[in-house]
Design a protein around this nucleic acid. Structure first.
Length: 549
DNA sequence: GTGTAACTAT
């Protein structure tokens, strides 16, 4: 068989690629002198990258004498796409020391790689390089920076980069709006959205996906509907990304009817949209519908992906119906979906939540390669079944085999301790999390430790712990303490705590209900009445919907 | 021919 290098590298259609046997192709390429021309080398590197033949790509790159910026960028992108961050970074550093200096696209590529691999420190380093090399106002670099920063929870950095642009283009706007949305600052996202429109910039699909991603709870439903209306107005709703974003937005708002309406308006919903719908039903607790749509999709003969399997397993786990779970497990085994650690973790979780911890542990033992997330699932399972000491053993085991615990590991461990009231062990774990493993506490960790302290009679300690927190305290943490006060019958502390909660968010009535129940338990009916009265007033004074559209 | 987007879970 013989190839024409020019046709080969210009006709980059996927079907064409699959016809080629890579070995033959490689033999041909290494024989051809033209292949080491930087122009062709660049295209061939891309071709190899699509075929996941990074070694061949690297070989060609190393043999090409006069490397252009394009060639450098292609090989760096190839490594970045294959999640080989170390290789991408070292090539980037090497490149920075050559005469062919990185351009704005090189930077944007390595910036994205930093964010995908959660390397904050490297991102800051690259950001510095961007500024030093004079790309600080380049839209290509800056949009990548904004996205990367916000993905790594560095929204202030992202804002700074955006704010430095005198005339942000649409991509820049989209990046920052999406950044705010995904960090949970939905209102900031909307504010920027309207500012952008006032400046005469027209939104596109990316923009609405960005704002929709910030709508994360039922109280924002009316805002979400406004966004949906906007999509209809601009005809974005037939865009697959927009449609999936809307489906999952509605499902986060517990509004599955609207989610289904969006879904059913699509002629050919893709796998992601199906996943969004199924996940939505599962989150809403409608496992019957979740299973029904899973089966519907299955009947169409579509090949599932692992995300869909994970989401349907979560649904069966919550339904605690082991029969469905076994069915899905069978499906996974039959269908030849590559059984990855994500699926295995979900299987372990499903079995343990359905009450068959032993089956979950069997899945765990059968796995050839165990990761931190599979250990996490087992630890959660053991904790759920009250086997805290076994959970702690698993923790020691994962440390011995060299795995690195993460936030979830500690949530699972604290939850396990909490479940059986292992006060001192829990404290120890909580301490090690920060001191030994340098993991930042999140709300859930505080919630567990407060519950653990509170339920084992150390209400004061729990209270002082919360008071010592430097940052603003999430209501969930105070809420945990409040329910402990309730359980221990400590009305004095309950009042103090409830006051804080009500200050924090006066619109939420749940805490007032809790406090009024505590009063009632103590026989303080006057206080109950007073509290109930403020509740109704507040309800009446609720703010009307936003009018930003 | 390189910058921004949808579904995962412990």
């Amino acid at each position: 068989m013989s190839f024409n290098l020019h046709i080969l590298t210009t006709e980059l259609s996927k079907s064409f690629l699959t016809l080629l046997r890579t070995k033959e192709l490689h033999a041909f390429i290494t024989k051809s002198h033209l292949a080491f021309d930087p122009f062709y080398a660049t295209r061939i590197v891309r071709l190899y990258s699509i075929n996941s033949k990074l070694d061949y790509a690297r070989h060609l790159f190393d043999k090409t004498p006069n490397r252009s910026v394009y060639l450098w960028n292609s090989i760096i992108r190839a490594y970045a796409k294959a999640h080989k961050f170390g290789d991408a970074l070292s090539l980037f550093l090497t490149m920075s020391a050559t005469e062919t200096l990185p351009d704005n696209f090189t930077y944007s590529c390595i910036i994205r790689a930093c964010s995908e691999n959660h390397h904050r420190e490297w991102l800051k380093f690259v950001h510095g390089r961007v500024l030093v090399t004079g790309f600080g106002l380049d839209p290509i670099c800056c949009s990548a920076l904004v996205t990367a920063c916000s993905n790594l929870d560095l929204i202030e950095e992202a804002t700074k980069v955006f704010g430095g642009m005198p005339h942000p283009d649409l991509v820049m706007w989209n990046s920052i709006i999406c950044g705010f949305g995904s960090c949970g600052y939905w209102n900031q996202g909307l504010l920027l959205f309207s500012r952008m429109r006032n400046l005469g910039e027209h939104p596109d699909g990316y923009t609405v996906v960005g704002v929709a991603s910030g709508i994360a709870e039922p109280s924002l439903l009316s805002t979400g509907k406004g966004i949906h209306g906007l999509c209809l107005k601009y005809n974005f709703d037939s865009n697959e990304h927009v449609a999936s974003a809307l489906v999952s937005m509605y499902s986060r708002c517990n509004c599955m009817d609207s989610a289904y309406l969006v879904f059913s308006s699509l002629l050919q919903p893709d796998l992601v949209t199906w996943s969004a719908l199924i996940t939505g039903y599962s989150r809403a607790g409608d496992f019957r519908k979740a299973m029904l749509f899973f089966q519907k999709l299955n009947m169409q003969g579509k090949k599932m992906d692992s995300i869909l399997i994970v989401s349907i397993l979560a649904a069966t786990a919550q339904s605690t119906n082991i029969r469905h779970g076994i069915e899905i497990h069978g499906y996974v085994l039959r269908s030849g979906i590559e059984s990855n650690e994500m699926i295995s973790s979900s299987l372990i979780d499903m079995y343990s939540k359905c009450g068959y911890l032993n089956l979950g542990i069997r899945v765990f033992h059968v796995m050839p390669q165990k990761s931190i997330s599979t250990y996490n699932s087992v630890i959660w399972g053991l904790g759920l079944h009250g086997l805290a000491s076994k959970a702690l053993e698993m923790f020691e085991e994962l440390l011995t085999i060299g795995l690195v615990p993460n936030e979830s590991t500690f949530s699972a461990l604290l939850c396990a301790c909490c479940h059986v009231g292992l006060n001192s062990v829990g404290k120890e774990i909580f301490k090690r999390m920060k001191d030994e493993f340098c993991i930042k506490y999140r709300t859930e960790h505080y919630v567990y430790i407060v519950k653990l302290l509170g339920m084992t009679g150390e209400l004061e300690v729990a209270y002082n712990l919360i008071m010592s927190l430097p940052e603003s305290v999430d209501s969930g943490i105070w809420g945990a303490l409040l329910s402990c006060c309730d359980a221990c019958g400590n009305v004095e502390l309950a009042e103090v705590v409830a006051q804080r909660l009500i200050e924090n968010d006066p619109d939420k009535t749940a805490y007032k209900v809790m406090l009024s129940n505590i009063y009632a338990g103590d026989g303080r009916w006057d206080d109950v009445k007073k509290l109930r009265d403020t509740m109704t007033e507040k309800e009446r004074g609720k703010l009307p919907g936003l009018s930003w559209i």
